[in-house]
């Protein structure tokens, strides 16, 4: 067992555990905090996979901005105590489906005729500064148009959020 695999397994356990924690917590605040942990774990995966920029974006945008927004809304609405679970019978079908999906995925990956290959050790193969530079060039060269479209999308989302949040009186 290499150090990579060890790290992977540990982080995998953490991410699955925090995901389940988010799913099962009765308190929405706990759920949000579990999700923050989960996002952090995934960010470490990104680092391991040689994507430091995405990892940082994950931490700042997701774990930072978005989850803070979530927590803010939860606090604002005071909906922490909404019961998480209904009676168990209702969960049978989704649970079965979920299990089936996981089994299918595993079967798909293990029975693949061609091995999908291994991930090289990022610390050996990736020059972080170089990777950042390449990513930037790619983003502002080949993917410039989608990038600009994304800015418009964000603008539209912002306008939408403002319109939705306006008091109803103003709407009339």
């Amino acid at each position: 067992m290499t150090i990579d695999l060890f790290l992977f397994l540990v982080l995998a356990l953490v991410s699955i555990g925090t995901a389940l924690g988010m799913l099962l917590s009765r308190n929405a605040v706990y759920s949000a905090l579990f999700l923050v942990l989960n996002l952090g774990a995934v960010a470490i995966f990104f680092l391991l996979l040689g994507a430091p920029f995405i990892a940082m974006a994950q931490i700042t945008v997701y774990a930072g901005a978005i989850m803070v927004l979530f927590l803010f809304v939860i606090m604002l609405l005071g909906t922490e105590e909404i019961p998480g679970m209904q009676n168990w019978k209702k969960f049978i079908i989704p649970a079965v489906l979920a299990g089936a999906l996981i089994l299918e995925s595993i079967y798909l990956l293990t029975s693949a005729s061609r091995p999908l290959g291994l991930i090289a050790n990022p610390s050996e193969s990736v020059n972080t500064a170089q990777a950042m530079r390449d990513l930037g060039e790619l983003l502002f060269d080949q993917y410039l148009l989608p990038f600009e479209v994304t800015s418009i999308l964000l603008l539209v989302a912002m306008v939408g959020a403002i319109v939705l949040s306006k008091p109803e009186k103003a709407g009339k």
Binding site: P94, L101, Y107, L108, S111
Partner: peptide, 20 residues
Amino acid sequence: ALSVFLGVVVIIGYLLIRQT
């Protein structure tokens, strides 16, 4: 959403069976 999920499961299952 459950229906969509069911669809996903069924489609993947179909693909698996076809592949097999």
